[in-house]
Design a protein around this nucleic acid. Structure first.
Length: 454
DNA sequence: TGAAATGTTGGGGCG
DNA sequence: ACGCCCCAACATTTC
């Protein structure tokens, strides 16, 4: 039987149910369709990552991949007819855009007498199977994770690697470059300095994390300069390592608080998908609708300063410059810059979400939206409205020596430790911007505005 | 996964 | 020895 295998967010050959089961019986064409018509177009950093992960996957598949750019609903029927395909394998969708696409595709293929087969490649627990006693979805993380997930059936075991793949022989004139994923400007070149984007390296990073870092994860994860986080997020986002594999490996270790903490972070990822699945409106609107009346200031000038890392608040600027330089921000600093944009600059979380979507190599549809709503206080189980991160205190607490701050804000290399997070109070003027807002005033203003909504 | 304001306590200096 | 004040350190409440 000839089959088309449609890769999407799981770009790996190991522990990939799609590839494992399809290659068992069938002759396959491994295919990637870049479709920004039916689903949200990727940001530049994501496209850069996608390009490289597809390159890696294609190499692992003996350069047999077929690359297509366009509307899935038009392209799949063309391929099906051209190669007399009888089955199409697809990753089981959970995001509403992808679910919609799935049903449309199923209908089209039905009419062509082609079977559409899907496997869950992405989630430990399927959103529709985790519900409260009254069958409604959870809205709070802890009960969702502890009661909903951890007491459900154990996630599937990873499937391993197909022993043999039978590729359909045909003249393949397509090339990865046809997808035009890399911007013409070469800004993304600098990302090459920070990432090695192969499936093998994903496994290496995970193994190294488990061997050398995980036991101190709980204690050290909040300190950006220690680099004790796994930094696996972009690999997980593009499915270069299987979440099921990770879960099994983590469970094979002796019980430990640090390990449980790391696992709960994977739980947050599940929670994001879960929320987006059950409440698709939250991708474009506030989860808590009462925030629809909130009057954001949305100053372009302030947004620009934030994006460029010129707010005059060192820890904020370090984070935003790390993002621009590396396509990544340390987790704690993400919360700090997010809180600052939304609560101190009073800029709508959707605008911050969009910037992260464009710049993060790990930009994940569900995690990005759910996390921005969390930090803005508009989401499910969100940070309470009055929780506002103080950039000076956060900087002092989590980057005491300023290693992280001065790495990305070298203007302050010579600044004394004591005033590193508030350089404007020092008589020496550094070649560094003055604060664009008064922190204390902006905090009080935000509290007042949020209180009106409450 | 916060911070600031407010309240409480206890030790030391000092008359 | 005692009472009083000050204030740091810690705890609780409030935003």
């Amino acid at each position: 039987m000839k089959s088309l295998v449609l890769f999407k967010n799981n770009l790996r050959i190991n522990d990939n149910p799609l590839l494992y089961y399809s290659s068992k019986e069938d002759t396959i064409i491994p295919t990637y369709i870049y479709d920004d018509i039916n689903v949200r177009a990727l940001g530049s950093a994501s496209k850069y990552w996608l390009h490289n992960s597809l390159k890696s996957l294609n190499a692992d598949l003996e350069n047999r991949m077929l690359f297509v750019s366009g509307d899935t609903l038009l392209e799949v029927p063309i391929l099906v007819k051209k190669y007399s395909i009888k089955k199409v394998y697809i990753e089981k969708p959970y995001i509403h855009e992808e679910v919609k696409l799935y049903f449309k595709l199923e209908q089209i293929l039905n009419e062509l007498a082609v079977e559409l087969i899907s496997y869950n490649c992405s989630l430990l627990w399927e959103p529709q199977s985790v519900l409260k006693a009254d069958k409604s979805p959870y809205k709070v993380f802890t009960p969702f994770y502890k009661k909903g997930c951890l007491t459900s059936d154990n996630p599937d075991q990873p499937v391993g690697k197909p022993s043999k793949i039978n590729y359909l022989d045909f003249e393949n004139n397509s090339s990865l470059n046809d997808l035009k994923l890399l911007d013409k400007t070469s800004w993304h070149r600098k990302l090459d300095n920070h990432w090695k984007i192969t499936e093998k390296s994903a496994h290496k990073i995970f193994d190294n994390f488990v061997t050398n870092k995980i036991m101190t994860y709980k204690k050290e994860r909040d300190f950006p300069h220690l680099e004790k986080n796994s930094r696996l997020s972009p690999f997980i986002r593009f499915g270069m390592i299987s979440i099921h594999r990770m879960w099994r490996e983590l469970n094979s270790l002796n019980f430990d608080k640090s390990i449980e903490h790391y696992k709960s972070e994977l739980g947050w990822r599940e929670f994001s998908y879960y929320l987006l699945h059950h409440f698709p409106y939250m991708s474009t609107q506030n989860f808590q609708r009462k925030f629809d009346n909130f009057k954001w200031e949305n100053s372009t000038e302030k947004l620009n300063a934030w994006q460029k890392g010129n707010t005059g608040y060192p820890i904020i600027d370090a984070g935003m410059r790390e993002l621009w330089e590396t396509g990544f921000i340390h987790n704690r600093i993400r919360m700090v810059v997010g809180s600052f944009l939304v609560k101190n600059l009073l800029i709508d979380w959707k605008i911050g979400e969009k910037w992260f979507w464009d710049c993060l190599v790990d930009a994940d549809y569900a995690s990005n939206i759910a996390s921005w709503q969390w930090v803005a206080g508009t989401g499910a189980d969100a940070a309470p409205y009055f929780r506002i991160f103080n950039p000076m205190l956060q900087g002092k607490k989590f980057d005491e020596k300023g290693y992280y701050t001065t790495k990305y804000v070298p203007e302050l290399k010579e600044a004394p430790e004591k005033i590193l997070q508030n350089p404007w109070e020092h008589e020496t003027k550094f070649n560094y911007p003055d604060p664009i807002i008064d922190y204390k005033m902006s905090r009080e203003n935000a509290l007042k505005k949020y209180q009106e909504i409450k």
